[in-house]
């Protein structure tokens, strides 16, 4: 059962990772990247590595989103195209 769960989670992680690359909007890409690290943390939990999962959760969920968001804003690449659709 654990193998199947891990396989489904890996597919989800790959979908989110593809979204990071394919989404043209940087804000959406940051959201997708935080989702990637989120699913990776669950994969580590399912594979019974709680310490690695905790590190991944700490760095991936909180800090990378904060650092990426502030960095993108500082660089002036921060745009929201609310009107148009940016389908991946």
């Amino acid at each position: 059962m654990t193998e199947w769960l891990a396989l489904i989670l890996v597919v989800m992680m790959l979908a989110a990772a593809l979204a990071v690359v394919l989404v043209p909007n940087l804000v959406g890409a940051i959201a997708a990247s935080s989702a990637v690290s989120l699913v990776v943390a669950v994969i580590f939990v399912v594979l019974r590595a709680p310490d690695v999962a905790m590190t991944e959760a700490a760095v991936g969920a909180g800090l990378s989103a904060a650092v990426l968001g502030l960095g993108v804003r500082r660089l002036g690449l921060w745009k929201l195209n609310e009107g148009k659709k940016d389908d991946a």
Binding site: A16, A19, V23, D86, D87
Partner: peptide, 12 residues
């Protein structure tokens, strides 16, 4: 919703 979301704030 995260993959499909029409705008960036939807993904957030």
């Amino acid at each position: 919703r995260l993959l499909r979301g029409p705008s960036a704030v939807d993904r957030l």
